[in-house]
């Protein structure tokens, strides 16, 4: 392999794994800046991935998917967003209306989602069939654009590891930034996470804003679940391998701000990918005397993140009112 194609592979794979982290961490940002700790991101991802993968299989069987591949993928993305949003309502109801402990509610949902996914997968696919395979037409191929296959940098980059979710993620990232910082809604949402009493006193409906925050996080989390499943490549197995929790870490690492979250997710994904390409990158040590040296590279992103977190911890600042149920009586 030439070095350009390796470089294209590494960049492509980094983006591929950064996309779910970015989407889910942005989702967490909306929820937490409205004042609700969303530890249920892992569960939301699983539900989004489950529903969208079932949709993809359904579209595949009906023949619609093969004839309109990217439209089919778009429908799956919408389903992922909708199912994630519906699932997140459970968190919103418990933590906003009933003022329950947000960590407890989130933990319950994290437990519910994989169990529900396994039970439903069994029910749909038959006993013991725990993997939902993703149809191959979900990939973006050269034929979609009517161009010929060639071994160029950009073709390697785009057609190996880009999906419709990648493009959607870019659009959603821009939307998220604009929504959070350039609209009245964003300002109100943030105020509910900082000082809900003050927000309420100027006529902002704190309950509505927090519901909006959680539902947006549900949409983004659901799409993130689908994005993770296409990135993982082996089909949906009722799990997102802890990416929801990682996204939580990326969100804190990214200081609850969109651009730093983008940086954090790319950073984390890059260090994750370096490990799997360590054989093809000449200047990396290969630890020949050590058995299973892949674990050293698997540990790398976590170690680096820890170091960065310790170095930047003085600047870290969580939304002030997150985790505290809003009680009108405290105004």
């Amino acid at each position: 392999m030439s070095w350009t194609s390796i470089l294209a592979d590494i960049i492509g794979a980094t983006i591929l794994f950064a996309v779910p982290l970015l989407l889910v961490a942005l989702g967490g940002m909306f929820s937490e800046r409205s004042g609700v700790i969303n530890i249920a991101l892992e569960g939301i991802m699983i539900v989004g991935a489950l529903c969208s993968c079932l949709t993809l299989v359904g579209l595949d069987k009906s023949g619609f998917g093969a004839s309109h591949p990217q439209l089919g993928m778009f429908i799956a993305i919408l389903v992922a967003a909708a199912s994630g949003a519906v699932f997140s309502l459970l968190l919103a109801f418990a933590s906003i209306n009933l003022r329950a402990d947000q960590t407890i509610g989130g933990t319950a949902l994290n437990m519910l989602a994989p169990a529900f996914a396994i039970v439903l997968t069994w029910a749909v696919q038959g006993q013991g069939q725990t993997t939902i395979l993703i149809p191959t037409w979900t990939r973006i191929t050269q034929e979609n654009f009517g161009i010929e296959k060639a071994d160029t940098f950009f073709q390697n980059l785009i057609f190996k590891s880009f999906y419709l979710t990648t493009i959607v993620a870019v659009i959603l990232f821009i939307c998220a930034y604009v929504l959070m910082y350039k609209t009245r809604f964003g300002l109100r949402l943030r105020s509910c996470g900082e000082h809900p009493q003050a927000a309420d006193s100027v006529g902002i409906n704190v309950f509505k804003m927090r519901y909006a925050g959680v539902i947006i996080s549900g949409c983004l989390g659901g799409i993130g679940g689908l994005a993770f499943t296409v990135a993982a490549g082996s089909g949906f197995q009722s799990s997102v391998a802890g990416y929801g929790f990682l996204a939580l870490a990326v969100m804190i690492f990214g200081n609850w701000k969109p651009f730093t979250i983008l940086g954090a997710s790319l950073f984390f994904a890059l260090f994750k990918i370096i490990g799997s390409y360590s054989d093809s990158i000449p200047f990396l040590p290969s630890f020949e005397s050590v058995n299973s040296s892949e674990y050293i590279y698997l540990m790398l992103p976590y170690v680096v993140t820890m170091i960065v977190l310790i170095l930047t911890s003085k600047k870290s600042r969580a939304p002030k009112a997150e985790g505290i149920p809003y009680d009108k009586g405290t105004r």
Binding site: L246, F253, T305, K314
Partner: peptide, 15 residues
């Protein structure tokens, strides 16, 4: 360093 214990413990699970 005031690093959130949730994120550190998630990292240390995998580590």
């Amino acid at each position: 360093f005031n690093v959130n214990e949730v994120i550190t413990s998630i990292m240390f699970n995998w580590l």
